[in-house]
């Protein structure tokens, strides 16, 4: 039976028919189904990001377009470069320790008999599920040099009080420690999931071939976990670079700005000092670098996925 469109004598029905065809196409249906998400991302991600870029191009009173002048200004400030340096130390150190601790703990949990494993998994996830602003407040009290439990114990053992948040070295250590405490369970759970997906037969075959613990780790476990490690590290690096609450609650950037990270410094400049364009410029500084890192890592993950 011929279709209506083919037999139609006039051109009037042709557009309606092609519209129907378009609507029936799989790509159109997929697009329509994805449209709510696209709109959501546009409203919640694209618009705020675009607005932040727009703000960073205005002068302090937000009346004039100044192009990249805010960035040029920041590049001349030694405090800004100190913040870049500190954010890098903070993010890199914290991610490395989170990854290492997560990896070790994941293996320990993986080796617990299945019966009791759920309990341990639940308990180890507790730091990650408590809102960080709240848990950091508890850490703040623990670090208080006058009244805290830490110093009380140290003094009880005959040691001197530690200025946990009052001296640069200790303050940096403290903010990184809390970030590691908060973030390591995320790595643990991701790595545990990856470990569980490694086929047991591979280990059995390796064992028959006489592979030791290190060889099994190097030639089976790590290659099988490579993608998940890459994605977890990437995700955590982005989140850690953007961290705000831990530093804000513990030190507010002090002493002498030596624990500021991008987000806390942006808040200090943008909201507290009423220089919103400069604050926006600080918060956008890492965006191109992190975007570039994300592109390369995700491309690598994709490539390996296609090869597999």
């Amino acid at each position: 039976m011929a279709s209506n469109a083919a037999t139609a004598p006039d051109g009037a029905t042709r557009p309606r028919s092609s519209l129907r065809k378009a609507a029936q196409r799989r790509s159109t249906i997929a697009f329509l189904m994805a449209l709510p998400l696209i709109l959501l991302i546009a409203a919640l991600v694209v618009y705020p990001a675009g607005y932040a870029i727009h703000l960073s191009t205005l002068n302090k009173s937000m009346e004039e377009f100044v192009g990249f002048e805010n960035f040029e200004y920041l590049f001349e400030r030694e405090t800004f470069w100190m913040v870049v340096w500190q954010s890098s130390i903070f993010a890199i150190t914290a991610v490395v320790f989170k990854a290492l601790i997560g990896f070790v703990v994941a293996h320990l949990v993986h080796n617990i008999p299945l019966k009791g494993q759920r309990k341990w998994r639940g308990m180890l996830l507790v730091p990650w599920v408590i809102p960080p602003a709240m848990s950091t407040l508890a850490w703040l009290w623990l670090f208080d040099s006058s009244y805290s439990a830490f110093n009380w114990i140290i003094e009880g053992l005959g040691g001197p009080r530690v200025p946990w948040l009052g001296e640069t070295g200790w303050a940096r250590f403290s903010v990184i420690l809390v970030n590691v405490w908060y973030g390591a369970p995320f790595f643990m759970i991701m790595y545990l999931a990856a470990l569980k997906s490694v086929p047991e037969q591979l280990y059995e075959a390796a064992e028959i071939d006489g592979a030791g613990w290190w060889q099994r780790m190097w030639f089976i476990t790590l290659p099988m976990m490579r993608n998940i490690i890459a994605i977890t590290v990437l995700f955590s690096t982005i989140v850690t670079f953007a961290n705000f609450d831990i530093v804000r609650v513990l030190t507010a950037g002090g002493p002498i700005d030596t624990t500021h990270v991008f987000a806390t410094y942006a808040f200090k400049l943008g909201i507290e000092s009423s220089d919103i364009p400069l604050g926006a410029a600080v918060s956008l500084f890492m965006f191109p670098l992190l975007a570039l890192a994300a592109i390369f890592i995700l491309r690598d993950v994709n490539k390996r996925g296609n090869q597999g």
Partner: peptide, 21 residues
């Protein structure tokens, strides 16, 4: 002054006097 005054926030001095220290 107490050694940790460089890390004090706006609540620390209140606690200092209220605690009797």
């Amino acid at each position: 002054l107490p050694t940790d005054v460089f890390s004090w926030d706006d609540a620390s001095n209140n606690r200092w006097i209220i605690s009797g220290r």
